[in-house]
Structure formats: structure tokens, C-alpha cells
Computed example of a mutant assay.
Amino acid sequence: ARMFRLETNYRSTPNILDVANDVIANNTRQHQKTLRSLQDAFMRPEVHAFADDREEAEFIAGQILQFRDEGIPLDHIAVLFRAAFHSQALEMELMKRDIPYDYRGGVRFFERAHIKNVLAYLRIVANKDDVVAWSRVLNMQVGLGPVTVEKIIRAIRQSEGVENLSHIGASLPARAQVGWMDFLAVWQDLLDSDQTVSGLIRAVATSKYAEYLENEHPDYRERLQDIEQLAVFGERATDLSTFLAEASMQESYQATTAKGGNEDEKKLILSTIHQAKGLEWEAVFVIGLAAGKFPHERSLRETNGLEEERRLFYVAVTRAKKYLYMTYPLLASFTSSLSGPSMFIEEIGRDLVHHEGFREETSIFDDPSDDVDDITYVPDPDYGEAPPKRRGILKSIDEL
């Protein structure tokens, strides 16, 4: 049999294909091929490192607006990511800047059930007469059916305060009391919090609600990451009522845009890489390219898992026609741990991309106090001349 290699690419610039070819060459369990472009050479793809995902989102949103001002329609721009929860911070930033977007391969942030659940907890803190919020919170508990929930809500609304609700459980059946006690445990955590918006959200995330998520959902870690992102969003709020009003506006906005909204309006594309196969855009941002996020840690333990992840990265890169940005945060928002770039970024030849946001020589930190304390380094006679002082991926710890 004869083999015909389909190596001509009509979509991407040579600069983008050079990156794709360089990375996929590390896969050994496939037929090797080298894509060749029919387009003229253009700008080199860019790699950007940021202190955290909030800074990453701010840069991407700003660059998208710049592209739009330069005449590139929003629907000719895409942001691609490995998993749906990688888009949290960016969705917040897009909503803040009123950039319309179409979400593919997942559920929009404020439409996710666990986000609605947390907001329901906050709403009953703000207003004990919010029947809809009470119904949502109580119906999650074991043994609490619609009739019992209605009875509880009626008792709560008749009570003078909500600081002590334990007496309501005395009239409930034994099975319903189990669910009611679970709710009271979450409620007490809310009362014991610092009463800031972010404090209330994190109180829910560390309460028995986290146990509920773990029992009900295999992807509970991603859901907890969503809740942490909501808490980060809440840190900017001045008070709970304003935050809930803004959240309601975002829910309404997302519901409207999800149903179509203004059909003539151009929208940015947010998509998982899996959903982007076979598509193309003028400009593409591949985000969340941090170690542990892409490739996914689980893939390293699976047979051929790493090569499959590399093929997925190859798909993401080759969706871009002219502009390609690859970005990653140095600080994970959920674990608050430092990470470096994805191994796929490190596999790209340094001359093929333009790097921003970190120094290439090393990932070793300097002590930021060296200059302040007037510290100098001298050679050790046993080890020869001291190497030149090397800079790290961050200019200072303040960048975190």
C-alpha cells in the first residue's frame, strides 16, 4: 500500500505551523508528518506568563478589545482551554468589560448548579424571606422533601431572627432531622464567618456542602475551584446586597445571551479544545498552559496519555490563522501553589516564539530583600568564581 501524507496547510502562517511541528515531533507513536503553509510569514506566536489567572484574564480581555478596535470581529477570535473550569477568571473579566461571548463545550459560570447553590446560601443570609433561595438550599438535604421544606420555610419566616434555628427540627420526622442538622452545620459556618462576601463563600466551600459535592459529583474538585473563583470575584464587592444584585444581573445576562440575545451581535468564542476540532479563527488564545493543568496530571499515569494530550495541544495551536497567544498563570488560584509552564511550552524552540512575563535563563528566585539589605555575593575559594546572579520567573514576590 502507498502512503499519502496530507501536509499542506491552507489555514495557518508558517510561524504557527513551526510551533505545531516542533511540539508534535515529540510524539513517537504516530506517523510523522510536517505541515507546510501556503500563507506568508507573519508575527511569531507569543507566550505570556502571569502572576495568577486574574492577571492572565485581564491581559486576554484587553488584547481582545484591541483586536476588535483594529477591525477583527469578535467571532473571528477564540479562547481555547483544556477543561471548562480553566475559563472561570476569564468569564468574570469578560462580563466586567461587557464583552459578549459564546460558550462551547461546557456550562457558563453563573449557570453552573454549584454556583447557584452557593449564591442561594448567600441570599438566605441577606434575606430570610427569600423563599426561592430557601427552597434550593433545603431541597439539597437528605430526607427533606417538598412538603417538609415548605413547613420549614414557613417556620423560618415566622421566627423573629435566624441566629438560632435549631428548635425547628424538633417537629420534623427522624429522617428529615438528619438533613436539617446537615443544613444547620452549614448555617453555623456562615454565621461564624467574617461576614464579608468572600468569607461567606469560602465558609460554604469548607462546610458540609463540600462533603455533599464530593458524594454527588466525581468532578467535585473542579466545582470547588469554581467556588473559589466566585470568592475571588467577591473580594471586590463592597457589601453582600450589591454583590448579589450584580450576580443576578450576570445570571440574567448569561441566560439572555445563551438563548441568542441579539442575533446580529458578534461574539467572542470560548471553547474547550475538544469542541474546537475542525474550526479556525483569525486569532486564538490558548490559556491555562501551566504544569499540572495541561497536560492533565492524570494523563501522565495513563498509557499513551501524554501523547494524546500533546495531540490536543497540537489541535489548539493549529486553530489559529494569524495570531496565536499561549498563556499561563504562575500561581494556582485554588491551591495557592506556584507552578511553571506546561511541558508543551518548554518543548517549543525558543527562537520560534516571543516570550513575555518571565526570564528564560532560570526559574530560581532571588531574595527580594538582597538589594534592600545591601547583600553582595563573593566567590567561595573551594568552588571557584560565583556564577552571575540569575533572575527568576518573577521580578519580586509582590507580583503574586
Score class of each variant (00 low, 15 high):
Val178Lys: 15
Leu331Pro: 01
Pro329Ser: 00
Asp130Lys: 07
Tyr325Asp: 02
Lys389Met: 10
Glu58Leu: 12
Ala245Leu: 12
Gln188Asn: 06
Leu35Tyr: 12
Met92Glu: 02
Ala20Leu: 10
Ala283Trp: 02
Ile273Gly: 05
Ala155Met: 02
Met249Pro: 00
Tyr101Asn: 09
Ser198Ile: 01
Ala276His: 01
Asn9Glu: 06
Asp18Cys: 01
Pro146Leu: 04
Glu385Pro: 03
Asp366Arg: 15
Trp281Ser: 01
Ser12Ala: 13
Pro341Cys: 08
Leu138Gly: 10
Glu356Thr: 09
Gly71Ala: 11
Glu251Val: 12
Ala120Tyr: 02
Ala237Met: 05
Val131Arg: 09
Gln275Thr: 07
Ala247Gln: 10
Gln195Met: 13
Arg68Ile: 05
Arg36Asp: 03
Asp367Cys: 10
Val197Met: 15
Val286Gly: 03
Tyr314His: 14
Val204Thr: 05
Ala133Asp: 03
Gly199Ser: 08
Asn21Trp: 00
Ile168Lys: 08
Gln66Ser: 14
Glu265Arg: 11
Ala291Ser: 11
Leu191Arg: 15
Gln229Glu: 06
Met140Glu: 08
Val372Lys: 15
Asp264Met: 04
Gly143Pro: 04
Leu289Gln: 10
Thr8Pro: 01
Met343Trp: 03
Ile345Ser: 03
Phe67Tyr: 15
Ala332Thr: 03
Glu346Thr: 08
Thr242Pro: 03
Lys293Ala: 08
Asp219Thr: 09
Tyr101Arg: 15
Val178Ala: 07
Tyr325Lys: 10
Val107Met: 10
Gly392Cys: 11
Lys128Arg: 12
Phe110Cys: 09
Leu190Trp: 12
Ala316Leu: 14
Ser369Glu: 08
Ala332Val: 09
Val197Pro: 07
Ala245Thr: 11
Glu399Gln: 14
Leu230Phe: 07
Gly384His: 02
Gln88Tyr: 08
Lys33Val: 03
Ala61Asn: 06
Val353Gln: 00
Ser159Ala: 12
Thr272Ala: 06
Val317Arg: 00
Ala57Ser: 11
Glu211Cys: 06
Asp192Cys: 05
Ala25Asp: 12
Ala291Asp: 06
Glu361Thr: 10
Thr238Gly: 12
Asp75Cys: 08
Val204Ile: 09
Asn117Leu: 02
His167Lys: 15
Glu297Cys: 07
Asn262Asp: 11
Lys395Ile: 14
Ile77Glu: 04
Ser339Phe: 12
